[in-house]
Write a protein that binds this DNA or RNA. Structure first.
Lengths: 83, 83
DNA sequence: CGTCAATATGCGCTTTCGCGTATATTTACA
DNA sequence: TGTAAATATACGCGAAAGCGCATATTGACG
């Protein structure tokens, strides 16, 4: 399932969802991307000052990618996904 | 056209493409997102230490959103798009 | 060419990252 | 409920962001 994100929090939540899906701990992911577990924690928490490098490294570590696209109108279903 | 991004550079390039499509200058976008033109410049250049907040603010200013999804196999065409 | 808009770069400053290291706190499960 | 794994948080540090302000540099167009 793809994740839509418009805020740092949603980005973090998306990362977390995919990480858990792959049965990885923050520590596991941290090793893959050469970052500390604490750094992964902040990323997933949606810390707005997290560096883009950290985000992209995490995506790579989880074999994910980003798509940038015009905002879609939110369906009732999509609104659910935001929570 | 949606943009796939796996690196900070590709994220920056995507932002730039959408900004130009909307006929906005870096200065225009900067005002919308309460950031300096210089900051927009670095974001578009793919500065890896750019903060997630800056990215999300820029996306909002351009009425864009992110999708996080499993990496797709690259078609020859998609590979072109990376350059 | 010349000129102006657009973009890139620089300086000093404050803020905050991500780091190593270490420890609280929460979660899961026997 | 007790215990270990997982996650959140803390401190000091060096590096770098983004800020205001200002200026190069580049690009588009008459």
């Amino acid at each position: 399932m793809d994740t839509i994100a418009r805020t740092p929090q949603q980005v973090g939540a998306g990362i977390r969802r995919f990480r858990r899906q792959k049965k990885l701990t923050q520590c596991d992911l941290g090793e893959k991307m050469h970052a500390r577990q604490a750094t992964v924690s902040k990323l997933e928490a949606g810390e707005p000052a997290t560096q883009l490098r950290i985000l992209m490294d995490a995506l790579a570590g989880l074999d994910l990618e980003l798509v940038i696209r015009p905002r879609t109108k939110l369906t009732a279903e999509a609104i659910e996904d935001l929570f």
